[in-house]
């Protein structure tokens, strides 16, 4: 049996999870929530993580009913993400690894999402849509790499949603994306927005600028409601994502789609992807907020795969990195 503890804190969530051979033993998490109209800044987010990380770690051990001696490897997020929060989490991971005399393992955050999605859904070799506040990528596995077939050329889809939420002062509790999703259900009118698929890639910054500019005028003149804008934005963004995912599937001859990342728990996105999959005779795999949204278990799971294939990270090489592409990692645990 191999037990891995995983530390995640690359954005506004801080989580510690423990995995024992595919079984999630514990996965506590906290979210740094800012007031409406405000995003989360790196230094404030790091302060939040510093204040709660040891409590979350204690919870993870208690819920799993494990002692430090039972753990085989300490995994943490090496990147990509915000520098200050990443350092906070790495410091605790390095310190406990040394205190407990366990090997350390730096994990790519994106790989964590993919491996957690594969574990939970049992998808074998899916085309992966990874959508979150910091990343938007269509990924397929080939020859020991998770290869990026398409991605955003500017901001992430979740960043576009979050920043739109700030413009019209939607609450960040539990998350701006969740609140947009609920409001979109009450939208009645589709407002036409730019649609910017560029080959295999997508662009969201122009859509954001357009809706930021238009929102105030349209809402104050009563031409549409905030709910209509939420609905229209979701339909436009998600259509673009479904389009590039479908094109990647056609390229790879793939019959499976796995959606991971925080935006992946949006049920409207899952529904639209499901329609496309049904038309192609393909299967859709998705998870719920426990595993889609950043969490510690996903780092533990990727760490488990890496550790079992013989990888470890020396302390002197355990520096964090804000930029760390999914395709930089050699996948030593798959054929």
């Amino acid at each position: 049996m191999t037990v891995v503890i995983g530390f995640e804190g690359s954005a506004n969530k801080i989580g510690v999870g423990i995995i024992r051979d595919g079984e999630v033993l514990s996965n506590p998490r906290r979210t740094y929530i800012t007031p409406p109209g405000q995003g989360f800044m790196p230094s404030d987010t790091a302060r939040h993580h510093r204040a709660v990380i040891l409590t979350v770690l204690k919870e993870a051990l208690e819920q799993a009913r494990l002692k430090p001696a039972d753990i085989d490897c300490v995994a943490y997020t090496k990147g990509p993400g915000m520098g200050a929060p990443l350092v906070t989490v790495a410091l605790v991971a390095r310190t406990v690894a040394q205190l407990w005399g366990k090997p350390l393992l730096g994990v790519n955050h994106c790989i964590g999402h993919i491996e957690m999605g594969r574990l939970i859904t049992k998808a074998n070799n899916p085309t992966v849509l990874y959508v979150s506040g910091g990343n938007t990528q269509v990924i397929a596995y080939s020859e020991r790499r998770y290869r990026i077939f398409g991605e955003t050329i500017d901001i992430a889809v979740g960043n576009c949603l979050d920043r739109f939420a700030r413009v019209i002062k939607i609450s960040n509790d539990p998350s701006p994306g969740y609140n947009i999703e609920q409001m979109a259900k009450k939208g009645e009118q589709y407002v036409e927005l730019p649609y910017t698929v560029k080959g295999m890639d997508v662009s969201f910054s122009g859509i954001l600028s357009y809706i930021e500019e238009a929102a105030d005028k349209m809402l104050s003149s009563g031409r549409c409601t905030a709910e209509d804008l939420c609905f229209s934005l979701q339909e436009t963004l998600f259509s673009m994502l479904v389009e590039i995912t479908e094109r990647a599937m056609a390229h790879c001859g793939s019959q499976e789609v796995l959606i991971v990342g925080g935006v992946g728990c949006n049920l409207r996105l899952q529904e639209m992807m499901g329609v496309m999959c049904k038309e192609r005779g393909a299967k859709l795999f998705a998870t719920d907020e426990r595993f889609c949204i950043d969490n510690g278990a996903m780092i533990a799971q990727a760490g488990w795969e890496m550790f079992r294939s013989g990888q470890e990270t020396d302390l002197e090489d355990s520096w964090i990195t804000q930029r760390y592409r999914t395709d930089e990692v050699e996948v030593t645990w798959r054929d």
Binding site: A46, R47, R50, I53, L54, L57, K58, P68, A69, V87, T88, L91, V92, T95, V96, Q98, L99, W100, G101
Partner: peptide, 17 residues
């Protein structure tokens, strides 16, 4: 800030084995 966090971690999860 980092030093404080490392010392707190040692207090809570130490001493070293």
């Amino acid at each position: 800030d980092h030093l404080t966090l490392v010392i707190e971690t040692m207090d809570m999860f130490g001493p070293p084995v």
